[in-house]
């Protein structure tokens, strides 16, 4: 479970695996937090996040873009996140952390749709490969 890097010439890619869709979306978001250097230890604030997508893949992109926005624009450093509701076109989550201007490590400009596909493997794990524009 978790994520691993995949090589992409211009940008940055990760492959995420999880036994279920909720876990897959949470693992992908935690990967974004870690790559950007946007993690925190304390949970002083709690934010509700809701995203509506066109389908499962689009919902994933919008969810991850929301995490990037919270870190890069709203100066939130994330200690924990939990998806409280998910279907193919809607996701609701609670994000906990702190406000901080602490420096970040990697800029993710955007989550791309390039070859983005959520697959169920033979071992019943869900898998997705995501390319970020960095």
């Amino acid at each position: 479970m978790g994520y691993q890097y995949i090589d992409h010439t211009a940008d940055l890619g990760i492959k995420v695996t999880s036994p279920d869709i909720k876990g897959l979306f949470e693992e992908a978001a935690l990967a974004v937090v870690k790559i950007m250097g946007g993690a925190a230890k304390h949970k002083k604030i709690s934010l509700s996040v809701t995203v509506d997508g066109l389908d499962r893949v689009d919902t994933l992109v919008r969810w991850l873009q929301e995490i990037i926005y919270l870190i890069a624009v709203k100066d939130i450093r994330i200690a924990d996140l939990e998806i409280t509701y998910i279907d193919d076109t809607r996701l609701e989550a609670l994000v906990k952390g702190i406000y901080s201007h602490s420096g970040l490590s990697t800029e993710i400009k955007a989550v791309t749709y390039h070859n983005l596909e959520i697959k169920k493997r033979h071992d019943n794990l869900y898998e997705v490969a995501i390319i970020f524009d960095t």
Binding site: L54, D58, R62, Q65, H114, L116
Partner: peptide
């Protein structure tokens, strides 16, 4: 980012084959 979403939402109306959603 905003406009890729707008184009994806509109895509079905225009029936354009996309080899890559990007």
């Amino acid at each position: 980012d905003d406009y890729i979403r707008i184009m994806l939402s509109a895509g079905s109306r225009y029936n354009i084959y996309l080899p890559d959603r990007q």
